[in-house]
């Protein structure tokens, strides 16, 4: 393994901590290349993904907000309708009660009038009958009186 490592290792200079040589520009080129590669493989795609997600989240949020607002509007609308329906029903109940009351009263009045009428008629009938009976009785009594009188007179 060391053979190919030593391949290019020519007469080694003395070295040292601050040994500046062609490593410097080559390393710079390497880092610049790495920057471009990482930009293409990492920064651009990941950035795109993250920003797409962020915009997706914000649009979803906006949509959800809009839908919420719409729902609230609908709810308020329905509440209003419900209240109106309740009021209407209440009014209808009151009207129906009044109507029923009126009908009851008129029916009662009619029935009472009819009852009074038939009672009156019955009374009149009774009166005429009684009168008739009285007349008949009186006539009968007169006739019997007359008969008694004529019989007594005849007997004397």
């Amino acid at each position: 393994m060391t053979s190919w490592l030593l391949l290019a290792a020519a007469g080694a200079p003395e070295g040292g901590l601050f040994d500046l040589d062609a490593t410097l520009p080559l390393m710079a080129v390497q880092v610049v290349l790495l920057t471009f590669i990482l930009n293409a493989l990492f920064f651009r795609p990941v950035g795109k993904t993250v920003e797409e997600r962020e915009s997706y989240i914000s649009t979803s949020r906006a949509e959800a907000k809009q839908q919420l607002a719409q729902t609230e509007r609908l709810e308020a609308d329905l509440r209003q309708q419900l209240r109106e329906a309740l009021q209407q029903a209440q009014a209808q109940i009151v009207a129906a009660e009044q109507e029923m009351d009126r009908l009851y009263r008129s029916a009662l009045a009619a029935a009472q009038a009819e009852a009074n009428g038939s009672r009156e008629a019955a009374r009149r009938e009774i009166d005429t009958q009684r009168k008739l009976a009285e007349d008949t009785l009186n006539g009968e009594a007169d006739r019997l009186g007359d008969l008694i009188v004529t019989r007594l007179l005849a007997a004397q």
């Binding site: 490592l5 290792a9 020519a10 080694a12 070295g15 040589d21 062609a22």
Partner: peptide
């Protein structure tokens, strides 16, 4: 301060780096 020297086109570079 010891380096593995490679010689590329007459330039010395530090192979281990």
């Amino acid at each position: 301060g010891q380096h593995l020297y490679w010689n590329i086109g007459g330039f010395q570079i530090h192979g281990q780096v």
